[in-house]
Design a binder for these strands. Structure first.
Length: 269
DNA sequence: ATGGTAGCACGGCTA
């Protein structure tokens, strides 16, 4: 079963690129981020006409996540628990049932966190974007810990806005103070891995120069000036099912591309 | 130091 994540950066602008990729990559399930659409205005036919069940968790103008799946989507949950005041649409969960296993899926769009605003003591400025990122990551960790107690295959995938290691950026030195790479961000990500999650891509590939995002500006794609920030994390039950994991970098060279490309894992569900 | 690009939606924010 091919499970993918794709930050599409606007569903209306990406109708062409998304459907081209769907038609040749043929994922069984894809979580999408930055749909930048409300549930009401999402062009559902793009996916439903191709045989996908669709669940959206949208928001006007920004953010927004969705899951499309050939198998039925069960027990759908929208929104990351832990803060009733958080109105940003960045988290969606569902379960799909294969022949041998039921898989819990968490699709996420983790806050970018820039600009980094700090107080005199170096702690994140309360109410700022960086504080929101770290708070959100703490809530994500709590939710993942809950799901781990189910003792079933779990996949947590999406745009994490985290560069895990220097080899995950073409120019790591340019990112040292950025919210995507500064140590507190990477520490929070690593803490999640320490719960027992596997980075599916790194489990399959040790190559450097593999990225999922290239800025639209300054010819970043042409220079392969990218970063690896879209990830697929598996708990131990999920990692035991992992057959393959790849990044569809070619999509970045297509017509009117997103600034992210799809990443996918093949699980023996 | 700035500006470089893109999306949503039509002004300015977000990335």
């Amino acid at each position: 079963m091919k499970i993918a994540s794709f930050n599409i950066n606007g569903i209306k602008a990406r109708a062409g690129a998304l459907t081209r990729w769907l038609d040749h990559a043929a994922p069984d399930l894809v979580v999408m981020q930055e749909i930048k659409s409300t549930d009401e205005t999402f062009p559902r036919a793009l996916l439903e006409d191709r045989g996908y069940n669709l669940e959206t968790h949208g928001q006007k103008g920004f953010n927004g996540v969705a899951i499309a799946s050939k198998l039925p989507l069960e027990d759908v949950c929208r929104g990351l628990p832990g803060d009733p005041d958080d109105k940003q649409a960045r988290w969606i969960e569902a379960t799909v049932t294969g022949p041998n296993h039921a898989l819990r899926i968490c699709g996420l769009y983790l806050p970018n966190g820039n600009p980094v605003e700090l107080q005199a003591d170096g702690s994140p400025k309360p109410g700022g974007k960086y504080a929101y990122k770290l708070d959100w990551m703490a809530r994500m960790q709590a939710r993942v810990q809950e799901l781990l107690t189910l003792e079933q295959p779990l996949v947590v995938l999406g745009d994490f806005n985290i560069i895990p290691q220097p080899e995950d950026a073409a120019r790591p030195e340019a990112w040292v103070d950025d919210a995507l790479f500064r140590l507190p961000s990477r520490r929070a990500f690593r803490q999640m891995l320490h719960l027992g999650l596997t980075d599916a891509f790194r489990a399959r590939c040790a190559d450097t120069g593999c990225y999922t995002f290239w800025d639209y500006q300054a010819g970043a794609w042409q220079r392969n000036d990218g970063i690896r920030i879209d990830h697929i994390l598996l708990n131990a039950y999920g990692a035991d099912l992992l057959q393959d994991c790849r990044i569809d970098s070619d999509e970045r060279a297509g017509e009117k591309p997103s600034d992210h490309v799809p990443i996918w894992a093949d699980l023996a569900l």
